[in-house]
Nucleic acid binder design. Structure first.
Lengths: 136, 136
DNA sequence: TATTGTTATACTCTATAACTATA
DNA sequence: TATAGTTATAGAGTATAACAATA
C-alpha cells in the first residue's frame, strides 16, 4: 500500500517515539515504574530538595498533573516531602527510592545503548543535535 | 538545575515529539482535525477502498481504537464506507474530505518544512534515516 | 501579585477482552 | 481458523479552571 506519511519527518518522529516508549515502559514495568516515575526519580536524585512545581517545569508536566505522579511515588515510599516554607515542599529520595533508581538506571542505560546501536554509524551522532534543535 | 535526562536520546526524542505534536494539533484545530484524523485522510486518499483494519495496521492503531476515529470522520462527512463483501467495508474520501485534506496538507507541509528548517544543515539529512532505523 | 499545592474535570490516546459475523 | 468490525472498559497522559494559603 502507498504510505505518504513515511515521507514526513514529524510522523517518523512520532512513530519512533511511540515504539520506543512502549518498549521502555514494558522493561520498567518489572520495577513497578513507568517513564514519568523514573524521570522524576532521576531529577530528584540530581536535585535533592526540588519542588513539585520546578519538577513540572523541567519535565514539561503541568503542576496539576504532578500531583498523582508524586502521590504514587510517595505511597510506594520512593520519595519523601519535607516543608521548605509554608507553601513549598522539597522532594528527596528515600533509601528505597535510591535503590529503585539504580535499578531503573540500569534498564534505561541498556535501553538507550541498544537504541543508538540500531542507528547506522554515519547517522548516529546527528540524532541528539537534530532533536534538540526541535525543542530546546 | 541539573538535568541528567538531557543526555538520553530517548528522552530528547519524546520531548521533541510532544512539542511538535502539540504545535501541529493546534494548527490543525482550525480545520476541526487532529493528527490521527489528518493521517487517516491522507492514507485513504492514497489508498481508496482501504479497510479500517488495514488502516489500523499502517498507523499502528488498534482496530478497536479506529472505530471512534472513523465514526467521527464519517459524521463530519469527510469519509464514506461502502461494503466490499459481507464483513469488510472500503473507505473513500467524500468531496468534502478531499477539500479538508488539501487544507490539512498545506498546514502539514508548512509545518514539516519549518521543522526541518530549525535543524542545523549538517544534521538535517540524518534525521529521517536515524528515526527510521528506530522503528521500521 | 505571583507562586505553590491541590481538587475536579474532561478529552485524547492506548490497551485488552469479548462478541458477532464473515472469509 | 483467521479476519473484520464492533462494544465496553480501563489506564495513561494532558489540559483548563478554580481555590486556599503563602511568598
Amino acid at each position: 500500500m502507498r504510505d505518504p506519511l513515511l515521507l514526513l519527518p514529524g510522523y517518523s518522529l512520532r512513530r519512533a517515539t511511540n515504539a520506543m516508549g512502549a518498549e521502555l515502559n514494558s522493561r520498567l514495568a518489572t520495577l513497578e515504574l513507568r517513564r514519568p516515575g523514573a524521570a522524576i526519580l532521576m531529577l530528584v536524585d540530581a536535585n535533592p530538595g526540588i519542588t513539585a512545581s520546578a519538577l513540572g517545569r523541567a519535565l514539561d508536566i503541568k503542576r496539576a498533573n504532578m500531583v498523582p505522579l508524586l502521590r504514587r511515588l510517595e505511597e510506594d515510599a520512593l520519595i519523601e516531602r519535607e516543608a521548605i516554607d509554608g507553601k513549598s515542599r522539597g522532594l528527596t529520595l528515600t533509601a528505597a527510592g535510591q535503590q529503585r533508581l539504580a535499578a531503573a538506571r540500569a534498564i534505561i542505560d541498556t535501553f538507550e545503548a541498544e537504541l543508538m546501536a540500531r542507528i547506522p554509524a554515519e547517522h548516529r551522532d546527528h540524532l541528539i543535535p537534530a532533536l534538540e534543535a526541535l525543542w530546546r
